[in-house]
Amino acid sequence: MKSLVLYVHGKGGNADEALHYKSLFPDADVLGFDYKAETPWDAKKEFPVYFDFVAAGYGEVTLIANSIGAFFSMNALADKPVKQAYFISPIVNMEKLICDMMAWTGVSEEELREKKTVPTSFGETLSWEYLCYVRENPIEWRIPTKILYGSNDNLSSLETMREFAQKIGAPLTIMDGGEHWFHTAEQMVFLDKWMLNC
């Protein structure tokens, strides 16, 4: 039976990015997921329904997920029959990221609880509901996973990434000078080599 590679983009990305991975998986069908969810609870409704629909008829499914796409996937697809996953700059500790953003903005937990949402100067809106959700729904991920991380990632520290990789038993590859968003020619060559070597 044929295998499927399902690509889940990050924030501001799109399903067409999946085309990049076709040459890396020549014997599989490669599909990009054009999801609408902006919160993990919406992803929990949308992702499993889509997965069941597209995965039907395939022998195995490989997941490639980027940034918040990886976070949404871990939150929504942990129980699905995914053979293996490749995470590129995944958000692995959303609670810490939200708390970091609160610190950058100078917003206390009390203030966020009272106001419910607080817009930031860097385009994100802090949400009390979101923070409560990630605290109440810790990630449980047992699918064999490989992680690629850029040393200049501005959203997750190396310590956070190492801790998570250790917890789930995932090999962690670090690109020296790589950013959160892998997009330059040099970064994409590194990404391709990493994936082929895996």
Rank of each mutant, 00 (worst) to 15 (best):
H183T: 10
K45L: 12
W194C: 13
V5Q: 08
L112I: 06
V30S: 05
S108W: 03
I139M: 02
G169I: 10
T105L: 00
K83H: 08
Y130A: 02
C99P: 00
T117F: 02
F72H: 07
N93W: 01
E136S: 12
L191G: 04
D27T: 07
V8Q: 03
R113N: 08
A37H: 04
P26L: 06
I64T: 00
T39I: 00
Y133A: 01
A56V: 00
S89R: 02
K2C: 01
E186K: 15
A78E: 04
M1L: 08
G69Y: 03
L112Q: 06
G150I: 10
L31F: 11
F53Y: 13
C198H: 10
K44I: 01
G59H: 07
C99Y: 04
E163Y: 07
Y35C: 03
L4Q: 05
C198T: 15
V189Y: 02
N154S: 14
V49H: 07
V5L: 09
I68Q: 02
S3H: 12
H183Y: 15
Y86D: 02
W141R: 03
R113M: 09
R135T: 01
F87H: 00
T117L: 01
L31W: 08
M74T: 08
R162M: 09
W181T: 15
N154D: 15
G12C: 04
K36Q: 13
Y21D: 02
C99R: 15
M195R: 13
F164W: 10
M195G: 14
S151F: 08
L172N: 09
S156E: 14
M195P: 13
K22G: 05
G177I: 09
D100T: 10
D16A: 11
S156M: 15
Y58R: 08
W141G: 00
V82Y: 03
T117A: 01
L63K: 07
S121V: 06
W128A: 11
L148P: 00
A103Q: 15
G57N: 07
I143H: 04
Y50T: 13
S3C: 08
V54L: 01
T125G: 01
I88N: 13
H180P: 09
V8E: 00
M188Y: 14
F25C: 08
